[in-house]
Write a protein that binds this DNA or RNA. Structure first.
Lengths: 189, 189
DNA sequence: TCTGATTACTCATATCGATGAGTATGGAAG
DNA sequence: CTTCCATACTCATCGATATGAGTAATCAGA
């Protein structure tokens, strides 16, 4: 049930079209949730039907028309309601971890490749988050911004995203190195 | 499709009953995947039907009988096949992050409570992972164990779990502190 | 001018995952 | 002596998520 609240949270700052939201959710800018395009569109339809957001048609000459959505008071109330409800604990669920768990029983060559690939991906995402953070805080220091900034929610979630991707990167690099050395070292199998 | 491979990976070291597996998946010992009891049982049924695991009945006097499962050669082949296939990137999906994203628009008191609660939970899990790691490596140093240990897969995934929970803990603590200070400071609202 | 990328979406279906309830036995704790 | 907890599962159902295909327009590049 949290996708709807993620959408509401994403719409708090600015009116967005479904397409823009999809971009935010799909292309990793959403550091606090992830969803498929179809999910986002379906959720927008439901949210509007329930009166939690309102859409207005924007006619465009050069592009297909689009609908911009903004959160209603009912939507804000819904977010408030969501915020006081118990949050489920978050779990890691990752194909790569499953593969590493089985590392002693399977061929590790492709696994090492996948780990280095993932490390590079994580690094790219971390860089992106870092840039986002700089943009958000402007010329203020982080401490300054977090103390007195007027909109710190996205900054805080972005910090988590950055730490997560850095953790991903470091672990992937280290794991790849270890597996590579073992493979080369005593040339088992 | 990865639950089945997670189950296979979990059964690599030892024969386990469905109930034991459920414990491993449900109670956080599974640092590489998470699943509900009913999912695990259903998957075991499917895996046995597909010949990837075999179960043997163990009659018990004092307890209900149980079935212990072990991975077959076909199961190992399936794991190999899984390992070379592309892994989907992993995303964070967390109610708490959604709430923090909306932090500037909602009441933060209960949010701060939830953050400190989560921090404590993460700390407990991190401690548990730390103990698991010590048990696995015995009296060897980590470097030693990772270089020459015979079964390092679970150790490596546990390392990721530990880092993840430490990251969770640190972020929750810091975020809670920041929100608390802002609330107290310029007493907005 | 044909191709492919980008904007802006919709529909249908399948699989995955979560939730609640239910069954049966034995041992420990009050 | 009764209630609760642990073992060891099964069945049913619902919502969430993923996948694949399809529409329709504009613009840039080969």
């Amino acid at each position: 049930m949290a996708l709807r609240h993620a959408v509401l949270a994403a719409l708090l700052d600015e009116e967005l079209s479904g397409y823009q939201l999809v971009k935010a959710f799909d292309l990793g800018v959403a550091n606090f949730w992830h969803a498929q395009p179809q999910q986002v569109y379906a959720e927008l339809t439901r949210l509007e039907k329930d009166g939690l957001i309102t859409g207005r048609e924007v006619v465009q000459d050069t592009r297909p028309n689009k609908r911009l959505f903004q959160v209603t008071d009912a939507g804000l109330a819904e977010l408030d309601h969501f915020a006081v409800a118990a949050a489920k604990p978050s779990f890691i669920r990752d194909d790569l971890l499953v593969k590493v768990q089985a590392a002693d029983h399977i061929d590790t060559r492709t696994l090492v490749e996948q780990l280095t690939e993932r490390a590079a991906f994580a690094r790219a995402k971390a860089d992106l988050f870092d840039k986002l953070l700089r943009t958000m805080r402007g010329d203020r220091t982080e401490e300054e911004f977090l103390r007195h900034g007027e909109r710190i929610g996205p900054y805080l979630t972005c910090l988590r995203g950055l730490a997560f991707e850095q953790g991903n990167h470091d672990w992937c690099e280290r794991t790849a190195t270890i597996l590579r050395e073992r493979e080369g070292g005593h040339a088992q199998q």
